[in-house]
Simulated scan of single mutants.
Amino acid sequence: MTAKNTICLWFDGAALEAANFYAATFPDSSVGAVHFAPGDYPSGKQGDVLTVEFTVMGIPCLGLNGGSTFRHNEAFSFQIATDDQSETDRLWHVIVSNGGQESACGWCKDKWGVSWQITPRALIAAISDPDPAAAKRAFEAMMQMRKIDIAKIEAARRG
């Protein structure tokens, strides 16, 4: 591991499976070194996968198979900026259809409980519009959505 700062994600035995899914799903993502436990530990045995080094869209991560003590929640999420509806739809659907679940305002969770914000750049532009009324309309439209619909956001922005 060469990065000075790495995101560590705790898994209950599925770090390698999750890392492989992320590498297959997101561009500029890959799985690096897999480290095996040199001895028994509270949630595993010697020889089990202990940690997995991986990258998600250029961000270095470490998956730790720490057991069932801790669960992921929305206090941490990956925010993925998408360029168009096709990319938004593809990422949303691959996460949700692989055992994940939908949430609100562009958020979803993967099957391991990691939260993802699939956020079109058009949404950020709309809710940052210098016209407060346009920004409010776009924001209110977003608040009604699960997966973001760029056409509806842009229509709301225009009024």
Rank of each mutant, 00 (worst) to 15 (best):
N65E: 07
I59Q: 15
F70S: 06
Q79S: 15
I80E: 02
T55L: 00
M57T: 11
M57C: 15
S77V: 01
R71T: 13
T69Q: 15
G58R: 07
F78S: 05
E74K: 13
G58L: 05
G63H: 04
H72G: 05
T69F: 12
H72M: 12
P60G: 07
G58T: 05
T82R: 01
A81R: 13
S77K: 03
T69D: 14
G66F: 02
F54W: 05
G66K: 08
N73S: 15
L62Y: 03
C61F: 08
G66L: 08
T55N: 12
H72Y: 05
G58D: 08
G66Y: 00
M57I: 06
S77Q: 03
Q79A: 14
Q79V: 13
D84H: 03
F70C: 09
H72S: 12
V56T: 06
G63D: 07
T55K: 12
D84A: 01
I80W: 02
R71Y: 00
T69M: 14
T82D: 01
E74W: 02
F70E: 13
I59T: 15
F70W: 13
M57S: 15
I80N: 01
G66P: 10
L62Q: 07
A75P: 00
D83C: 00
M57D: 01
G63A: 10
F54Y: 14
I59E: 11
F76I: 09
H72N: 10
D83R: 12
T69K: 13
T82A: 03
D83N: 13
G67P: 08
D83V: 07
M57P: 00
P60Y: 06
P60K: 09
N73Q: 09
A75T: 15
F76C: 10
L64R: 02
A75F: 06
I59A: 13
Q79L: 14
G67C: 08
G67H: 04
G67W: 04
D84V: 03
S68I: 02
T82E: 03
I59S: 12
Q85V: 07
S77Y: 04
N73R: 05
P60L: 08
V56R: 02
G66W: 05
G66V: 07
L62G: 03
A75N: 14
N65S: 10
Q85Y: 07
Q85H: 10
Q79R: 06
F54G: 09
R71A: 15
A75Y: 00
T69L: 14
S77D: 02
N65T: 08
N73W: 03
S68D: 15
F78E: 10
C61I: 08
A75C: 12
E74Y: 02
P60N: 09
Q79D: 00
G58E: 05
V56Q: 02
G63R: 07
G58I: 06
F76Q: 06
V56A: 06
N65A: 09
T69I: 12
F54P: 09
F54S: 10
L64K: 01
D84P: 06
R71G: 04
N65V: 09
T55R: 12
A81V: 05
L62H: 03
M57G: 14
M57R: 14
N65K: 03
F70K: 11
Q79Y: 00
Q79N: 11
L62T: 06
S68P: 13
G63S: 11
E74A: 13
A81N: 13
S77G: 07
G63C: 09
D83E: 15
F78C: 08
D83G: 14
E74D: 14
